[in-house]
Measured scan of single mutants.
Amino acid sequence: ETFPLDVLVNTAAEDLPRGVDPSRKENFLSDEDFKAVFGMTRSAFANLPLWKQQNLKKEKGLF
């Protein structure tokens, strides 16, 4: 299941849709939104070091 970017960005855990893991908001973006937000594919993002993934998520309001 995916959700629009505005539902996930800068949203407190208690305000997220049911079933969304607040530590993994990026997994609930569509592939198109994911690429638009991070400028890379999911596989490229997954290959980044964890610290870099976290920094990007913070920068984009998805942490």
Rank of each mutant, 00 (worst) to 15 (best):
E1R: 10
E1P: 14
E1F: 15
E1N: 14
E1C: 15
E1I: 15
E1K: 14
T2K: 11
T2N: 06
T2L: 07
T2P: 05
F3P: 02
F3R: 04
F3C: 05
F3A: 03
F3Q: 05
F3D: 02
F3H: 08
F3N: 02
F3W: 14
P4I: 05
P4Q: 08
L5D: 03
L5R: 04
L5F: 08
L5E: 02
L5Y: 14
D6W: 15
D6T: 10
D6C: 11
V7T: 09
V7E: 06
V7D: 06
V7M: 14
L8E: 02
L8H: 04
L8D: 03
L8R: 01
V9T: 09
V9A: 10
N10M: 07
N10C: 12
N10S: 09
N10I: 06
T11L: 11
T11I: 10
A12C: 14
A12V: 09
A12T: 07
A12I: 09
A12R: 13
A12Y: 07
A12S: 13
A12H: 11
A13N: 15
A13G: 08
A13W: 14
A13S: 12
A13D: 15
E14L: 08
E14I: 08
E14D: 13
E14K: 09
E14W: 05
E14S: 08
D15S: 08
D15N: 07
D15F: 06
L16G: 05
L16R: 02
L16P: 13
L16T: 06
L16D: 09
L16F: 07
P17G: 03
P17D: 07
P17N: 03
P17Y: 03
R18G: 15
R18K: 15
R18W: 15
R18F: 15
R18I: 15
R18H: 15
R18T: 15
R18P: 15
R18V: 15
R18Y: 15
G19H: 09
G19C: 13
G19I: 10
G19Q: 10
G19T: 08
G19M: 08
V20E: 07
V20G: 03
V20N: 06
D21C: 07
D21E: 06
D21S: 02
D21N: 06
D21A: 03
D21M: 02
D21W: 03
P22G: 06
P22F: 02
P22S: 06
P22V: 07
P22N: 04
P22H: 05
S23N: 15
S23D: 14
S23M: 15
S23L: 15
R24W: 07
R24S: 10
K25F: 04
K25C: 06
K25V: 15
K25A: 07
E26F: 02
E26K: 01
E26Q: 04
N27T: 10
N27K: 13
N27I: 08
N27Y: 10
N27W: 10
N27D: 15
N27L: 12
N27F: 08
N27Q: 15
F28C: 06
F28M: 04
F28R: 06
L29K: 01
L29C: 02
L29H: 01
L29E: 04
S30G: 06
S30Y: 02
D31P: 08
D31Y: 05
D31I: 07
D31H: 09
D31R: 04
E32M: 10
E32W: 10
E32T: 13
D33V: 07
D33S: 05
D33G: 03
D33Q: 05
D33I: 05
F34H: 01
F34R: 00
F34E: 00
F34C: 01
F34V: 01
F34N: 00
F34I: 02
K35V: 12
K35Q: 15
K35W: 15
A36K: 11
A36T: 12
A36M: 14
A36I: 11
A36E: 13
V37C: 12
V37E: 03
V37M: 06
F38E: 00
F38I: 02
F38R: 00
G39M: 11
G39A: 11
G39D: 13
M40A: 00
M40V: 06
M40I: 08
M40T: 03
T41C: 09
T41L: 10
T41K: 07
T41E: 14
R42G: 02
R42F: 06
R42N: 03
R42I: 03
S43M: 11
S43W: 11
S43T: 12
S43D: 14
A44N: 10
A44E: 14
A44V: 14
A44G: 08
A44S: 10
F45N: 00
F45I: 00
F45C: 00
F45L: 01
F45R: 00
A46N: 12
A46W: 13
A46V: 13
A46K: 13
N47V: 11
N47D: 14
N47R: 12
N47S: 14
N47I: 13
N47Y: 11
L48N: 00
L48I: 06
L48F: 05
L48H: 01
P49Q: 03
P49K: 02
P49F: 00
P49L: 02
P49C: 05
P49V: 02
L50E: 13
L50W: 14
L50V: 12
L50T: 13
W51S: 11
W51L: 10
W51H: 10
W51P: 08
K52E: 14
K52A: 08
K52W: 11
K52V: 12
Q53D: 00
Q53A: 05
Q53I: 05
Q54W: 13
Q54F: 08
N55P: 00
N55K: 13
N55W: 12
N55E: 14
N55M: 14
N55R: 09
N55A: 14
L56W: 04
L56Y: 06
L56R: 01
L56T: 02
K57L: 08
K57Q: 02
K57C: 07
K57D: 00
K57A: 05
K57N: 02
K58C: 11
K58L: 10
K58V: 12
K58F: 10
K58E: 11
K58I: 15
K58D: 07
K58Y: 10
K58S: 11
K58R: 12
E59H: 06
E59Y: 07
E59R: 10
E59L: 11
E59G: 07
K60W: 06
K60A: 15
G61Q: 05
G61V: 01
G61M: 05
G61N: 08
G61K: 05
G61R: 05
G61P: 02
G61A: 03
G61C: 08
G61H: 05
L62N: 03
L62A: 02
L62W: 05
L62Y: 05
L62P: 03
L62G: 04
L62S: 02
F63R: 03
F63H: 15
F63N: 12
F63I: 10
F63C: 12
F63D: 15
